[in-house]
Design a protein around this nucleic acid. Structure first.
Lengths: 164, 164
DNA sequence: GTTAAATAGTTTGATATCAAACTAAAAGGA
DNA sequence: TCCTTTTAGTTTGATATCAAACTATTTAAC
């Protein structure tokens, strides 16, 4: 997202193609959406790479979200998964279909409500707990690298007061 | 993206469904990706809403990015648009197809390179300059609302030192 | 000058995403 | 108890996104 950036990249490509992207020069507050978006996309690219290294290239970021919730909170209904990973219920149906097909999760009937399904990990899915925690740690360490703890807290404190 | 969050939502749904999502309580640094992702999605939702109000519901966020670049930097090649809005060239082909179909942009041959196309705004596209600037201002004001200027600068300074 | 390699943009195929509509079941109201 | 409304999850259709392959053109190498 770039149209929230009023000061656009003013360094043009010269005939010698030696344009410089001053990546780490602070951008003005108006560029925040564009910069945040770019950072997130970099994180996702890193995670996809880590998934591929583990032979999990069939999984995307949201599959990881869903697995992580099941790993840490146990079996639960589609509706709750939808809320937790902030995805539309139809998307969750799709994600669960894929993970079920890969053998990582299973659907069970909810005796209390025959409309509902309870999604749980299979044994195979349980075996991924360590890998997902590792990928998560790698991504966070890469993200925060070089930022002192007190600045991380400052950043989160400001981020949390952004009330959008 | 949630699996970068080590401390998951610990407030469970009770039988009375009175769970509380403490939205503005600072989250730990490990939750940064999840929180940033959520804020961005909120911004995008706001922008989509502003587009719809203007009868521009056929446009999505990346269309706005592309238009904004053309509004502020003039006609340019697909390759440069791809770089500026950080999208794959095949995606830019798609976005330009859509905007061309809506009458907002046009493709021209590049006399210097018969492989290339130069994308420019039509008159109709030019007429959207004010609306896009307005939407941009609304979104940024909504995003930063309540955050003093010096904290916005602190936030951007830390964000820019995140070297991922 | 000719051929090989690289490039600009398009096309194809796959995927995650959401909105709307659907079915089946549960909850609410009279 | 019966009917209406709401809900859980699925299905359908549309869309933005990217990777890979493609065509046409430019650039590089010999």
């Amino acid at each position: 997202m770039i149209w929230l950036l009023f000061l656009l990249d003013s360094i043009d490509i010269s005939l010698t193609s030696n344009y410089i992207t001053e990546m780490n020069k602070p951008r003005p507050p108006d560029a925040v959406i564009s910069v945040m978006s770019k950072k997130l996309r970099s994180v996702y690219a890193l995670i996809r790479s880590e998934l591929e290294v583990r032979g999990l290239q069939a999984l995307d970021i949201s599959h990881g979200d869903l697995m992580f919730v099941l790993i840490h909170s146990g079996p639960q209904a589609m509706k709750e998964l939808s809320r937790r990973i902030d995805r539309d219920k139809s998307t969750v149906t799709s994600l669960v279909d894929k993970l079920e097909g890969l053998g990582f999760v299973k659907r069970s009937d909810d005796p209390a409500d025959r409309r509902a399904s309870i999604i749980g990990l299979t044994q195979k899915g349980e075996e991924l707990k360590h890998e997902f925690n590792k990928i998560s740690r790698i991504a966070l360490e890469r993200f925060w690298h070089g930022i002192p703890q007190h600045e991380r807290i400052t950043f989160m404190e400001i981020l949390s007061r952004i009330s959008i």
